[in-house]
Write a protein that binds this DNA or RNA. Structure first.
Length: 636
RNA sequence: GCCGACGUAGCUCAGGGGUAGAGCAACUGAUUCGUAAUCAGUAGGUCCGCGGUUCGAUUCCGCGCGUCGGCACCA
């Protein structure tokens, strides 16, 4: 007797083993048709798997959110079959489901062309129409290796060889085609449906290692129905519209050019936003008890040797030479901050010392890594180092987390995730120090009530760290803030303080940034707001636009009044219709258009039109000035 | 760095072995208008760079540079 418990709590009993397929038929013909897989004890399995022990199960249909993963994995298989039908000498390697879709990596001597994607997609639709049954088989390991080697699938043979002995070797057949796969899969290719689309071609290293061969990856997206597919494609279009590189050009914020790869030319408007952001940060840092410093960009190699950067990070440092001295352009500010700390004798009464710098750093990033503002070679960190005692780690960690949350909230980000990275394989400092550092950070985060996810082995070479990842308006994640506990650098660079006991002690250094890189954060802000900055950040806050040239003098008066109140204002006195002006400044994302015609001039008023709205508010000039001043005030 | 695609006016893009094209923007003139494009005209090019093939290359081929999409990297 096998007792099967269904999600509604009802129990069905069978004499022998039962498959999900039969179970679904038993429950009803509708379900039988819709069934894609079965969850046994919450684990997704094939519908054809015999169940011979008492189990709690659920039939999975496309309504189940987990069905998407199954569907996408099948899409990868169907694509692989299509590719091998069209391009017989291609080897298949791996093809998982991923967020929003799937990919498959192929090994083939000739590259796929973008035109091939359309052919492959058409072939995939044929395979779906064929509605081939998908059948699972378990093969003896040696036979499987022999088989895959025999048909020239060396990568598959390698995968099998590396699978643990305990793992059964399973093969899924769909029609004449088969693939090594752990499963589970849909019952037939027809169940995939046609809400998929091949998206792009890319290179990818075998097993993700740059020492290995480069394979050809084809990415696709797949959904349970056409509407979802269409929504996803629309979302991509929207994301493209808010791409910071595009908006940077459209809004005249900045540009990049090849003579300064990975470095930003900030235009007046972009720099206005940048400066506003920086002024805001200074205000927050002042309030949180930081002091600000500024340190050299070019520093002799000997300091980097002492700090450990020369050993651990030289490849990414720009080097300069002068009078037989080797200088490095600083990739980080920490060693310089320790130099300031080391001037004079520090007492425990000086701690914690919170030393901030908008530090201009250069890192020689791989050319292929560069990406607009998001990944640059020259950038400014909102960096700071907190020198403190071990006892102060907890309260300083908490203080930092509070500050970070405030800043993110002010900038419109409320969804923040935190990763805890522990010791990396290559590191400075011995294990006792690492035990201490990791322990201290762990204690501090739990004391601050911070939930973290472990990111094993990803710490900085001098200490464990927290990474703060925020989610933007369209759901994308950006790693911005960081917090690192460091017992190593103070030691290497000889930082000390005199304790209450009169003896010398080592301070702990907490490296921390909230925005991370100013450049990158600007990119994140542009994309998050789609260029429609909040008033206090907007490069231009008000345009005073005239209806007729008779109002020009008054418009200039209005502009001057608003400017005196500290607002960023321009006038538009051009001989154009008001429609034209409204359209142009709306497209330029100016938050307020103050329209003035003769009526306003005579009554000393303005007609305010807000970005995104289509109504006007007529206010006396003095009142408009007061209100706008309040609205444009920086938070904090 | 690796794989692939791309590089044409300020911008977005079309074109193609034989004098280089559009829209928007710019400039000039007319229009003085009440909340998302007034009309007319003018000007604008090393078709990324260097080589090669060709009577002739912006177009075809090779190399280089850059950009884009991924991969790897991101202390």
């Amino acid at each position: 007797m096998v007792a099967i418990t269904l999600p509604d709590g009802s129990v069905r009993r069978y004499d022998g083993a039962i498959t999900g397929e039969k179970l679904a038929v038993d429950i009803g013909p509708g379900l039988a048709k819709a069934a894609l897989a079965i969850k046994i004890g919450g684990v997704m399995k094939d519908l054809t798997l015999p169940i011979n022990t008492d189990s709690t199960v659920a039939i999975v249909t496309k309504k189940d959110p987990d069905a998407l993963e199954l569907l996408r994995h099948d899409a990868a298989h169907v694509m692989a079959e299509a590719v091998q039908e069209l391009f017989p000498k291609t080897q298949v390697t791996i093809g998982p489901s991923i967020e929003n879709g799937f990919y498959y990596d192929f090994a083939r001597s000739e590259p796929f062309s973008p035109d091939d994607l359309a052919k492959i997609e058409a072939k995939m639709r044929e395979i779906v129409d064929r509605d081939e049954k998908i059948v699972r088989e378990e093969w003896p390991r040696h036979e499987a290796i022999k088989y895959f080697k025999g048909i020239g699938e060396d990568y598959k043979a390698e995968i099998i060889q590396d699978l643990p002995e305990s793992e059964p070797i399973t093969v899924y057949k769909q029609g004449k085609w088969l693939d090594l796969c752990r499963g589970p899969h849909l019952p037939s290719t027809g169940k995939l449906g046609k809400a998929f689309k091949l998206m792009k071609l890319a290179g990818a290293y075998w097993r993700g290692d740059s020492k290995n061969a480069m394979l050809q990856r084809i990415y696709g997206t797949a959904w349970t129905d056409e509407k979802q597919l269409k929504d996803y494609l629309t979302m991509l279009e929207e994301a493209e519209k808010r791409d910071h590189r595009r908006l940077g050009k459209e809004m005249d914020l900045f540009h990049l050019q090849e003579e300064a790869q990975g470095a930003v030319f900030w235009h007046p408007k972009g720099w206005t936003v940048y400066r506003s952001l920086q002024m805001y940060m200074r205000k927050r840092l002042d309030a949180a008890g930081y002091v600000e410093v500024n340190t050299p960009m070019l520093v002799d190699r000997v300091l980097w040797e002492r700090s450990g950067h020369w050993e651990n990070y030289r490849q990414n440092m720009f080097i300069a030479e002068s009078e037989e001295r080797f200088l490095a352009v600083k990739p980080m500010n920490c060693p310089c901050h320790v130099q300031i700390y080391n001037q004079g004798i520090k007492s425990y009464r000086d701690l914690p010392l919170r030393m901030a710098e908008f530090g201009s750093c250069h890192r020689n990033e791989a050319s292929g890594a560069l990406h607009g503002l998001m990944r640059v070679r020259a950038f400014v960190q909102d960096d700071a180092h907190i020198f403190c005692t071990e006892d102060q780690i907890k309260s300083e960690t908490k203080g930092f987390i509070d500050l970070l949350r405030t800043v993110y909230a002010d900038l419109g980000f409320n969804d923040v995730r935190v990763l805890f990275s522990d010791r990396p394989p290559v590191r400075a400092g011995d294990d006792t120090i690492w035990d201490k550092a990791e322990g201290a950070l762990r204690d501090a985060t739990s004391a601050a009530g911070l939930e973290t996810k472990l990111n094993s082995g990803d710490g900085a070479f001098y200490g464990p760290k927290l990474d703060f990842i925020l989610r933007d308006a369209i759901g994308r994640e950006w790693q911005c803030g960081t917090f690192q506990v460091d017992f190593v650098l103070p030691e290497r660079l000889g930082a000390e303080y005199v304790g209450e006991d009169g003896a010398k002690h080592r301070p702990v250094m907490l490296h921390r940034a909230i925005l991370g890189s100013m450049e990158r954060f600007m990119g994140v802000l542009i994309e998050n707001y789609a260029g429609k900055f909040p008033m206090w950040l907007a490069p231009l806050q008000v345009v005073v636009a005239t209806i007729t040239s008779d109002a020009n003098a008054y418009a200039q008066d209005v502009a001057k009044t608003l400017q005196k109140a500290g607002l960023r204002v321009e006038t538009d006195l051009r001989n154009e219709k008001i429609n034209y002006k409204v359209r142009e400044h709306s497209l330029a994302k100016v938050p307020i258009i103050a329209v003035v015609g003769m009526k306003e001039a005579e009554g000393r008023s303005v007609a305010l039109r807000r970005l995104g709205g289509n109504s006007q508010e007529i206010l006396a000039l003095a009142e408009a000035t007061d209100r706008l001043t309040v609205e444009c005030a920086m938070p904090g």
